[in-house]
Design a binder for these strands. Structure first.
Lengths: 125, 125
DNA sequence: CTACACCATCGATCCGCCTGCATATCAGCA
DNA sequence: TGCTGATATGCAGGCGGATCGATGGTGTAG
């Protein structure tokens, strides 16, 4: 499995929404589904949450195995999935590998899911 | 697999975000992951898109099999997944079953994914 | 009443993924 | 160099899901 780059890169992730005007293309649907699949796992959601709420907004593997109740290889596996999806970034400092959220990654997904707001007639709530 | 009701119901879907302040609970993570899992499929994303862009914002199964290139049982299966996740609603009229988007369902998911903008100090947009 | 069209369900198959154990890799240290 | 600890990778078992063909149920038309 070679590294395919962050699936959330602007060039790979289309500017379309599944709720947009035009029917979504097959290839676009597969790309978006790929990123959502990385999110659609309880362990990975908790990992994102744990990392985000960590002291410096970063955490190493050894800090994450205990709260999750999963083995270290399994945690590394999930972190890899999230990193390849473009949701996490990894920094190796000494023996430890620190993971942190990619700032706007999840917000980008949220935007893709948000309807294209035809706010012409829509009053602010 | 018995029907568990709309996973997006206010009572079942917590008001937490994976990017919220507190680490997400295990049960909450599983519920959110369940809804995301329903979204994380190319066929289902295209179904949502097709239905949304249909003339009246609704479509029956017979209109959806051809564009997707999937068999009718498979399309029914996906529609069932989306409906049980609370993303679609079904209305039977005669022999046809019309599906339409649940208005704010996907927006709710998007909100859950959106960082909780610590609005204590942040002025309301 | 019979035939037909639309849809849901069932059963079976195939494939991908979550998980853990074992092992490899790498950095720091004596 | 050799040892220890933190991560990553390989491998395999087991479960869930995506798909299709066949079947059943139900309106509608004739």
């Amino acid at each position: 499995m070679e590294y395919v780059g962050t699936a959330l890169a602007e060039t790979t992730m289309p500017q379309i929404s599944p709720l947009g005007g035009e029917p979504i293309e097959r290839a676009d649907a597969e790309r978006l589904a790929g990123v959502l699949k990385a999110l659609a796992d309880p362990a990975r959601l908790r990992l994102l949450s744990l990392i985000q709420s960590a002291p410096e907004g970063e955490a190493c593997v050894c800090d994450l195995t205990a709260p999750l109740g999963l083995s270290q290889p399994t945690v590394s596996h999930h972190l890899r999935i999230l990193t390849e999806a473009g949701l996490l970034e990894r920094e190796k400092r000494g023996v430890w590998a620190y993971y942190r959220l990619v700032p706007t990654a999840i917000a980008t997904i949220a935007d893709l899911l948000t309807p294209p707001r035809k706010r012409a007639t829509k009053k602010a709530r």
